[in-house]
Computed example of a mutant assay.
Amino acid sequence: MLAAGLVASACTAAEPSASIPPTATTGTPSATAAATTGWWSPTDTPTTLASDLAAPWSVVPLDGGGALISERGDGTVLELTATGELRTVGTVAGVVSGGESGLHGLAVWSDAGERWLYAYHGASQDNRVVRMPLLGDPGALSLGEPEVILTGIARASNHDGGRLAFGPDGYLYVTTGDAGIRPSAQDEASLNGKILRITPEGDPAPGNPFGTAVYTLGHRNVQGIAWTGDGTMWASEFGQDTFDELNRIVPGGDYGWPTHEGVAHDDAYIDPVATWATDDASPSGIAAVGDTVFLASLRGERLWTVDTADGKLAADPVASLVGEQGRLRDVVAAPDGSLWILTNNTDGRGTPRPGDDLLLRLEVARHE
């Protein structure tokens, strides 16, 4: 196990800030990969951009400032405006919540002057991906009618995956869990226990290793994906009882679940680059800035900073925000160079405090 802790003394929610700092254009397709290089680390205590969120799951920065936020329980999509106001954009039709399923990941795609909001959510019989026209101007956004682009991902009370992100190649990556059906992770014909790669219209992306939507297999429950500045793709994964993982993702890779958990030294499978005890991590969303990957941890109630080089670990991971903000569900690289972090204390497993849940802003700086 690799671990190094930086324990801070504060244990209260961050103080609210008045508005969101000005941001540069996020661009399309992805704001998760920074154009910069080098290693980065948090430099200060976080400030609060939004409060009183209900089980938030995903945050997506918007061009020109502001963000969209998903709330898992009722399918609500919120807009945080550039001036710091919080308003409802709409409700994703057909969301059926229960256990760990509901409205999960969001992603925004622009094409030929049209903007689309993509959402991963639980429906009555499955998990699925839909897209909706994102209408209106910032501060007055609304949702058009949903179009279902991917169905048939098994749902359960847990292990539902759910992260969406457009990669540097312009294709949509979708993470799924095994839905408690462990053999599905090794079944190439199943969408579960996988990372999927599809076109914006929902078709298997050209060049996929199996000729289907499946990009990688052998996953238990992936809820975070990001690309470092060198183009390397990374994914976080919940372990069973012993090891949570950070994996370097390669097309067609088999990451060993349910045969292995953690490092196995088995040539038939790809070992994780870093592991943690499940009490120290349980990682959900991840972000990348330069060559650094940041992991938002639920049970671990901390943010892990992992420096990489050439697809490998460059130094022992370092923990920050330990116990300060409770459970952390998502972290994204914001266009202004900071990290935006969602807490998740109102999801039924945390201990909510006044103001929870929060969207936090955390400054990072390059280090040598």
Rank of each mutant, 00 (worst) to 15 (best):
E79A: 06
E79K: 03
T45N: 12
P46Q: 10
V60R: 14
T45F: 13
L62H: 02
D63Y: 01
G75V: 01
E71H: 06
G73F: 06
E71L: 15
T76G: 00
G66W: 03
V59T: 13
V59F: 04
A55T: 13
S58P: 07
L78I: 00
A82T: 10
S70K: 02
V60I: 15
T47R: 14
T81K: 07
G75K: 02
L62M: 13
P56K: 07
E79L: 06
W57N: 10
A82P: 00
L62N: 04
T48I: 01
G65C: 13
L80E: 06
T47V: 14
V59H: 07
G65Y: 13
T76V: 13
G64F: 09
G65K: 11
S51W: 09
W57L: 11
T83G: 15
S58L: 03
L53I: 02
S58G: 03
L62I: 04
A55D: 14
D63R: 02
G65L: 12
T81S: 15
L80A: 08
T48H: 01
E79V: 01
G73Q: 11
V77M: 05
A54V: 15
G65W: 14
G65S: 12
R72H: 11
L68D: 04
A55Y: 14
P46D: 01
A67V: 08
G75Q: 02
L78T: 00
W57G: 04
P56A: 04
L80I: 10
T45S: 13
I69L: 13
G75N: 03
E71C: 12
E79W: 10
A55L: 07
A50L: 12
L62Q: 05
A54F: 15
P61G: 06
L49F: 06
T76I: 09
V77Y: 07
A50Q: 12
W57H: 08
G84H: 08
L49P: 03
L80K: 08
G64R: 12
L49G: 05
G64M: 11
E79C: 06
L49C: 11
P56Y: 10
L80Y: 00
T45P: 00
D52N: 15
T47D: 09
T47K: 09
D52L: 05
T47P: 00
G75M: 03
D74K: 13
L68E: 03
D74C: 01
A50N: 12
L80H: 01
V77P: 11
I69P: 04
S51I: 01
A67M: 12
S51M: 12
T76M: 03
S58N: 08
L78N: 00
A50K: 08
A82K: 14
G75S: 03
T81V: 04
T83D: 15
G66T: 02
S70C: 04
A67P: 06
R72V: 11
A82R: 15
A67L: 09
T83C: 02
T48R: 15
P61F: 07
T81L: 06
L80Q: 07
W57Q: 10
V77W: 11
T76W: 03
A67Y: 12
L68R: 04
S58W: 04
L78D: 01
D52A: 11
L49E: 06
D74V: 09
T76A: 11
L68F: 05
G64W: 09
T48A: 15
L62F: 03
P61S: 05
P56H: 08
L49K: 10
T48C: 12
T81I: 05
P46T: 06
G65I: 11
P61N: 07
D74N: 14
L80R: 08
L68K: 09
A50M: 10
L49M: 12
